[in-house]
Amino acid sequence: METRELICIGCPLGCNLTVTIDGSEVNVTGNTCQRGADYGKKEVTDPTRILTASVKINGGVVARLPVKTSRDIKKGMIMEIMEKVHACSVEAPVHIGDVIIKDICGSGADLISARDVDRV
């Protein structure tokens, strides 16, 4: 049996979690909500993150468009996805929630716009 001490990143409370792993059995204590239990389990089996970044936007009132993954992605894929993000540029206007790259790197998540950017 393995025990790991984690800090939950589910919300700003940052609860101290104790996760015990016994074969396929994973137990989380110290959480104050279901989100914490989910995070604890995931973190020791298949850690994921929401990725936020920005891409170049042409013809917009700002130079950068903030973007995020529509759902959490495998932690190990972050740098691979960032390469795609760096190579990406879009044309204004863009609306909040617009899909910029569908199923980015086969992660199952879309890269979506996090801001309305009007055309100049």
């Binding site: 700003p12 920005s54 909040i96």
Partner: peptide
């Protein structure tokens, strides 16, 4: 503040800064 973590308390979902502002 383009990172996420905003709005859990207010909207019960996790938003980025620009989304929260929007």
């Amino acid at each position: 503040c383009i990172h996420n973590g905003f709005g859990l308390h207010t909207f019960k979902e996790e938003l980025t800064g620009p989304e929260y502002a929007a």
